[in-house]
Amino acid sequence: MSPTRLEFHPLTYVPERDGITVGRVDAASFAMLPEDGVALLRRLAGGMPVDEAEQWYRRTYGETVDMADFVDAMRELRFVRAEGEPLATPPKVRFHRLGRFAFSPLAWVVYLLVMGAAVVAMVNRPELRPQADHVFFVPSLLGVQVGLALCQSPAILWHEFYHLLAARRLGLPTRMQIGRRLYYVVVETELDALLTVPARRRYLPMTAGLLADAVLFGALVLAAAADLSDGLSWPGRLALAVAYTVLLRMSWQFYVFLRTDMYYVATTALGCTNLDEVSRAYLRDRFGWLPWVRRADWAEGDWSPRDRRLAPWFALVTCAGVGVLLVTVALWTAPLIWEFGTRVVSALVNGSPTGPGFWDSVASLLLVAFELVLLPLLAGRVQRRRAKSPSPAPAG
């Protein structure tokens, strides 16, 4: 028989536009509840017996509540302490001091000096300004691919580490983890714990990655500028090549329809919870008559009223964003593809099979084919195997 009193783990309560976010930080479990639901939860967490809390709710709000369902929901969220379960304690947060230092006034001065000096250098020396040709920092195409691949991982870790530091500065137990997008292995920072602080304190952790990229870009430009005295050597050219790829990644963060960092900034400012999913459902509902569109019943979705109101506008942003993406690809990415293709064709057509340029182009093409053809095929094969494999029988 269920006890009349429930014991709860420490919970956080953060007001939002459409309700109050209740969370348990150590378990990364959060839910948005209406004010009456939070009031009921506070009564239960304060030690009020379940039957008395039900009567209090009826007297206060003039309607009944399904207490069994409410309590079950709180258990599923792991807000309720199970019998014999120890009381949750705040998790230890490493890098708290480093996070505070990374965003101290002195650090901001350093960041501004680096970025400002880089702008001055690019104004005075046009060869430092971002250009697609900078990517080809050595004659070998294979060397370009391998060199940039080796530099991307530290650059991405730098971006994600600043997300983590900005959250750890607030004492939040965020963490970095390995994830996958399509068949690429990526590093991601979990920022769910931001739901335990007011919205105005979430913006810096969300934009910290962009700040890190801007500082890295400035530092790379300055490193190349220091190498200009005797003409750019390969380290200086490599710095400009990596700087160009950093700038590309920074531009991608503004494609809010792809749920980038700036998407979460926008949804936080608008007070939304799942604007992207609602907007996509809205578009599928409107264009469901097309044969290649899987229709969604937008009217029946369980979404917040604010998400519903803003979904048509964000759907326009999504459509416009696809156009902007195509334009930026044409301006920034297409020149890279064109230059790569021109060099490969020239080496294969005009080069000698006994020359190094010929086999360098062959190896480079094989690497591209492995990444764009073989890897997707292998990933699809693994996914189909997992889909066909029977689910394990439940234990017990």
Rank of each mutant, 00 (worst) to 15 (best):
residue 135 V to W: 10
residue 2 S to G: 11
residue 142 L to W: 05
residue 165 L to Q: 00
residue 332 W to S: 05
residue 154 P to I: 02
residue 147 G to P: 01
residue 369 A to P: 00
residue 389 S to M: 09
residue 60 T to W: 09
residue 318 T to N: 11
residue 332 W to V: 09
residue 6 L to C: 08
residue 110 V to C: 14
residue 91 P to M: 09
residue 28 A to L: 08
residue 216 L to N: 00
residue 1 M to D: 13
residue 158 W to N: 03
residue 301 G to N: 06
residue 200 R to S: 13
residue 263 Y to V: 03
residue 144 V to N: 01
residue 245 T to Q: 14
residue 310 L to V: 01
residue 210 L to D: 12
residue 245 T to G: 12
residue 83 E to A: 13
residue 341 G to M: 09
residue 21 T to A: 13
residue 277 E to I: 02
residue 40 L to R: 06
residue 352 S to V: 05
residue 364 S to D: 09
residue 135 V to F: 13
residue 290 L to T: 01
residue 269 A to R: 13
residue 337 I to S: 11
residue 79 F to D: 09
residue 295 R to F: 06
residue 60 T to E: 13
residue 375 L to T: 00
residue 22 V to W: 00
residue 368 V to E: 00
residue 337 I to R: 15
residue 116 G to A: 06
residue 341 G to H: 10
residue 79 F to C: 11
residue 103 F to N: 09
residue 214 A to Q: 07
residue 153 S to E: 01
residue 45 A to S: 12
residue 336 L to K: 14
residue 252 W to I: 10
residue 299 A to C: 04
residue 32 M to T: 11
residue 91 P to T: 06
residue 9 H to I: 02
residue 254 F to Y: 14
residue 238 L to A: 13
residue 206 M to P: 00
residue 49 P to S: 04
residue 28 A to Y: 09
residue 382 V to A: 15
residue 326 L to R: 12
residue 327 V to Y: 13
residue 158 W to P: 00
residue 224 A to E: 04
residue 65 V to E: 06
